[in-house]
C-alpha cells in the first residue's frame, strides 16, 4: 500500500497530457476537457482527504469549508481590491492553514463520531458565514467579476490552457503526496491509523502528525477553491455546502480511501457522474449518490481500487 509504482504514474501523466487532444477529435465528448478541469480541482481536495482519512484514519466532513475559504479569499481580494490573483491564492492557503490549526488542534484530540461532528459543525458554520456576511461575500447571490489567471502576460483564457494549469497543480500535489506517503511521515501516519497507543509508544508524535496532515489537506482544498473561483469567475455559497463535503466523502469512498489512486479515480468518476452522466436525473441524483455510497461501503470497503484484490482472492480459492 505504501509503494506507488512509477509506471502507473507515467501512464497517468500521458493520459492527462493526451486527454484534450483526443477528446478534441470526437465531437460528442469535446466538452470533456471542461469537465476534467473540475475533476482536477476535486482531485486536489480528495488527495489531501485520502491522506487524512484513509492513511491517518481521521474523519473530516467539513472540507467544503476550506474549499470555500480558498475560493472566497481569492474572490474578495481580486474582485473587490483588484490584487494580483497569485499572491491571493497563497494568502488563501495561509488563511486556511491557520484556521486548520485552530480547528484541528482541539478537534483532532477527538475520536470517531466526535471528530466527524466537530468537522461537520465547523463546515456548517463557515457556510452560514458565507451566506450572512453579504458585504464581503455577496450573500446567497454570490460574487461575480473574479478575474481569470495569467502568468507573465500569458493568459489562461481557454479551456485547454486552464486544463493544463490545473493538472500541473494536481501533478505537483500528487508527487508531493506520494513522497509523503513513502517517507517516514507516511509510515507514521499509517501507524496512527492502526493503533494510536502503539504509534505513540514507537515515538510518533501523534497530535503533531495529525495536525500536519489536517493542515496539508486544508491547504490543498483551499488551492482547489481558488482555482475554481478563477476558472468560473463566479462563486456562490451553495457550492460549499454540507452536501459538497459529503460528495467528497463519496469520492474517496468510491475510489478507495486507503490508496492515493482511489482519490483520483473517485474524484474523476463522481465529477463525470454529476456533470455529465447523471444530468437527466437532475436533483434526484442524490438517490444515486446514496446508493453508490451504501453499496460501496457494504460490498467494496476498499473502494474500486480494492476490486482487483478481491478478484485475485477468488482466483486463489
Amino acid at each position: 500500500m505504501l509503494r506507488i509504482g512509477k509506471i502507473p504514474i507515467a501512464v497517468f501523466a500521458l493520459f492527462i497530457i493526451a486527454f484534450p487532444w483526443v477528446t478534441h477529435e470526437i465531437p460528442s465528448i469535446e466538452h470533456y476537457t471542461d469537465i476534467m478541469i473540475f475533476a482536477g480541482i476535486y482531485c486536489l481536495i480528495t488527495m489531501g482527504l485520502s491522506l487524512l482519512m484513509g492513511y491517518t484514519g481521521q474523519i473530516s466532513i467539513g472540507h467544503a469549508a476550506f474549499y470555500g475559504i480558498g475560493a472566497y479569499t481569492s474572490a474578495i481580494l481580486t474582485a473587490q481590491y483588484g490584487l494580483n490573483p497569485w499572491p491571493c491564492i497563497i494568502v488563501g492557503m495561509a488563511i486556511s492553514a491557520v484556521i486548520a490549526v485552530l480547528v484541528g488542534a482541539p478537534s483532532l484530540k477527538l475520536k470517531g463520531h466526535y471528530l466527524a461532528m466537530a468537522t461537520l459543525a465547523f463546515g456548517i458554520i463557515v457556510y452560514i458565514i458565507f451566506n450572512e456576511e453579504a458585504a464581503w461575500t455577496g450573500g446567497p447571490d454570490g460574487m461575480t467579476g473574479i478575474p481569470g489567471l495569467s502568468l507573465f502576460g500569458f493568459e489562461f483564457d481557454s479551456v485547454k490552457k486552464y486544463y493544463y494549469l490545473v493538472w500541473i497543480f494536481v501533478f505537483a500535489a500528487f508527487i508531493f503526496t506520494v513522497n509523503i506517503i513513502q517517507s517516514g511521515i507516511g509510515r507514521a501516519l499509517r501507524a496512527i491509523h492502526v493503533s494510536e497507543p502503539a504509534a505513540s509508544a514507537m515515538g510518533v508524535d501523534i497530535s503533531r502528525f495529525k495536525i500536519l496532515v489536517f493542515v496539508y489537506s486544508a491547504v490543498l482544498a483551499s488551492l482547489a477553491g481558488s482555482l475554481y473561483a478563477h476558472y468560473l469567475n463566479f462563486i456562490n455559497p451553495s457550492t460549499f455546502d454540507l452536501f459538497f463535503s459529503i460528495k467528497l466523502l463519496i469520492m474517496i469512498a468510491l475510489g478507495g480511501m486507503y490508496n492515493i489512486w482511489g482519490a483520483i479515480i473517485g474524484a474523476g468518476l463522481i465529477t463525470f457522474l454529476s456533470y455529465e452522466w447523471l444530468y437527466y436525473f437532475q436533483e434526484y441524483e442524490v438517490i444515486v449518490y446514496g446508493a453508490i455510497l451504501l453499496l460501496v461501503t457494504i460490498f467494496f470497503p476498499k473502494g474500486l481500487v480494492g476490486v482487483p484484490g478481491i478478484v485475485k482472492g477468488w482466483f486463489r480459492e
Binding site: G112, G290, T297
Partner: peptide, 17 residues
C-alpha cells in the same frame, strides 16, 4: 467507526432523495 458513519450518511441521503 468510519464505515458505519459513511453507511448512515448514505442512508440519510437515500431517504432524503
Amino acid at each position: 467507526v468510519l464505515t458505519l458513519i459513511i453507511a448512515t450518511i448514505a442512508a440519510s441521503i437515500l431517504l432524503k432523495g
